[in-house]
């Protein structure tokens, strides 16, 4: 048999019919297309569909990263200062021979003018002054929420409406008084300096502010479609307030105002202690520690002032930092290529 071309083997180019046959089989082609679909197309400036919102996301990305990192740093520093038993390791007692020591292993943040360890004093200040204050503010917020629920329910009865209107007027009047001035005047007139008058004043104002805020939120939301639908179906007002309001739409504004109140409480307590109407020595507070060391910076002992001011700043920023972390990162918008 002669060695001619085999009839079974199809050549790539058949001049007889003049058509190009596929180099790859259809199956391999399908697999290749499926693989290529997973690869992103090459973006070009002309084809990138970048809306202002997406551009904004990318422009603000470094700032958001910085905010989150800063928030983590604040939370970690605060937790370490509060959670560790520093007073067991570093003595917060008076030791005049070690007065105004610079930061060292024996005293990581140095000592104050009476030789007391500043780190231990700061931990005690957080535990003894800041935490009770925050507990008071939290309790006042809950009280304000309860008060607003009661008042909103009372509003449905005609007979209670004048009383609620009068209460609103009084609450608005009390809230418009500067909190710091009110606390200062209360402490000065009653001649009872300490943490308790500060907590009373702050709690009163915070409860009334929360009450007024919830009343405003209810006024905005009561005409919403799902609220009216629930009412038309015979649903209870209290359930609406809790389910649609407190547990849903009002959570974020309430959390923001709570953070603001916590921050304000720290600043006001420190201010009053600085002026001598808050926490009294020897109990530590940022305010009275600052007042005791304020003139030292002129003599070159500025690090005590800086440490205390930074401590106060970190403590005042903590509620905002926790809010930033709990809110989570904004959802990343999808960039569409066309």
């Amino acid at each position: 048999m002669g060695k001619g071309p085999s009839k079974n083997k199809v050549p790539f180019w058949t001049p007889a019919d003049g058509h190009l046959r596929p180099l790859l089989s259809p199956k391999i082609l399908e697999m290749l297309i499926a693989f290529l679909r997973f690869l992103p197309p090459k973006p070009t400036t002309a084809s990138l569909h970048l809306t202002p919102r997406k551009a904004l996301y990318f422009l603000t990305a470094p700032k958001r990263w910085l905010q989150r990192t800063w928030s983590v740093v604040i939370v970690v520093v605060f937790s370490l200062t509060l959670g560790m038993p520093w007073s067991l390791w570093f003595s917060p007692k008076v030791n005049l021979s070690a007065a105004l020591s610079s930061p060292a292993w024996a005293h990581p943040l140095g000592t104050d003018n009476l030789g007391r360890d500043l780190l231990a004093r700061t931990g005690e200040a957080l535990l003894g002054a800041v935490l009770p204050l925050w507990c008071g503010v939290l309790a006042a917020t809950l009280l304000g929420m309860g008060l607003s629920l009661i008042m909103i329910c009372l509003l449905r009865r005609q007979i209670w409406r004048p009383f609620v209107a009068w209460f609103d007027l009084v609450a608005a009047g009390v809230v418009s008084i500067p909190v710091c001035l009110a606390a200062f005047a209360w402490a000065a007139l009653r001649e009872r300096a300490g943490l308790v008058p500060v907590i009373y004043t702050l709690s009163t104002v915070v409860a009334l502010r929360t009450y007024l805020q919830l009343r405003d939120l209810y006024r905005q939301d009561e005409q919403l479609a799902y609220w009216t639908a629930h009412a038309a179906l015979g649903g209870s007002l209290l359930i609406r307030l809790i389910r649609y309001g407190l547990c849903a739409a009002w959570t974020q504004p309430l959390a923001m105002s709570l953070g603001f109140h916590l921050r304000t409480a720290v600043a006001i307590e420190a201010s009053l202690s600085y002026l001598g109407f808050g926490v009294q020595e020897p109990s530590p507070s940022f305010g009275n520690m600052l007042a005791a060391h304020f003139d030292l910076y002129l003599k070159g002992q500025w690090y005590v002032l800086v440490i205390l001011v930074l401590g106060l700043g970190v403590t005042a920023s903590l509620p905002q930092a926790v809010l930033t972390l709990s809110r989570g990162e904004t959802r990343r918008p999808r960039v569409r290529y066309t």
Partner: peptide, 13 residues
């Protein structure tokens, strides 16, 4: 937008 107003940095800081 912290409530739109109010104390940002305590004066004592």
């Amino acid at each position: 937008a912290v409530l739109g107003s109010g104390m940002i940095m305590p004066a004592l800081v």
